[in-house]
């Protein structure tokens, strides 16, 4: 089955086309004990925090074209639901939701941070940039989330990660604030990888699980202030 994989929760606008099929001799299972194999056939990523709205749809078109596939050939959509900066995140989620709707195929959410922890042994801090000098983060033990996702200042995350026994960190948020995290930070990946995202959903895709709504992990409330008293036109 052909699967479209999308993520727009980081500055890397990502679209990929994957194939999910039963594992066999030459197609090893994605995760131990999982009867499904997943392969990425084509991928496009553009690192530009301001280009999500312009780049995502052409990249979807491009990965389909590269594999000689049409939109109607897709069987499922896997989308990163963040956490991530709101405007870009929404572009990915409305795109995935509308495509799923138009094609009549299920959509499966994955937490964008989880993708960084796939196949990574030990205790790991994953962090992406949340702007305003904060990071979106979560902690994992052998790929299983222990804490998060949350949005916090890097110095606070350093304390939490130490308490959870993290030995290393990964993600562009960790790289950006490496000096405050007090952990070795991996140079790569900086952004979510489609193969890892697909593996997080491979069981749902393979078994034809019911689709789920793509609800963004905003983690912050909108900036709003309720008016207190009206401004005066004339001095009192």
């Amino acid at each position: 089955m052909l699967v479209l994989v999308l993520d727009s929760a980081t500055p890397a606008v990502t679209a990929a086309l994957g194939r999910v099929e039963p594992a066999a001799g030459d197609r090893p299972p994605t995760i131990d004990g999982n009867p499904w194999s997943a392969t990425i056939l084509a991928r496009r990523a553009t690192v530009d925090a301001r280009a999500h709205g312009e780049r995502l749809a052409p990249q979807i078109d491009a990965v389909l074209g590269e594999a000689g596939a049409k939109p109607g050939d897709l069987g499922a959509i896997v989308a990163g639901i963040g956490p991530g900066p709101f405007t870009g995140l929404r572009v990915g989620l409305v795109t995935a939701t509308a495509l799923g709707d138009a094609l009549g195929i299920p959509t499966y959410p994955v937490c964008t941070l989880d993708a960084f922890a796939v196949g990574r042994p030990g205790r790991v801090l994953v962090a992406t940039d949340a702007r305003r000098r904060e990071i979106y983060w979560a902690c994992y033990a052998d790929g299983v989330r222990l804490a998060g996702p949350e949005v916090s200042k890097p110095v606070e995350v350093a304390g939490r990660a130490a308490g959870l026994g993290a030995r290393q960190a990964v993600g562009d948020g960790a790289l950006r604030y490496a000096d405050q995290l007090d952990l070795p930070v991996l140079a790569e990946p900086r952004f979510p990888q489609p193969a890892a995202m697909l593996s997080l959903a491979v069981r749902r895709v393979g078994t034809g699980a019911p689709g789920e709504p793509l609800i963004p992990l905003y983690l912050r409330r909108p900036d709003t202030t309720e008016p207190v008293a009206r401004k005066r036109a004339a001095p009192q």
Binding site: G53, A57, P71, T87, V91, V94, A98, L99, A102
Partner: peptide, 20 residues
């Protein structure tokens, strides 16, 4: 509004792409 426009435009692109 920039962020509001993007939601509609991204949806329109998705429907246009899916339905050709």
């Amino acid at each position: 509004l920039a962020g509001a426009l993007l939601v509609g435009v991204a949806a329109a692109k998705a429907y246009a792409l899916a339905a050709g």
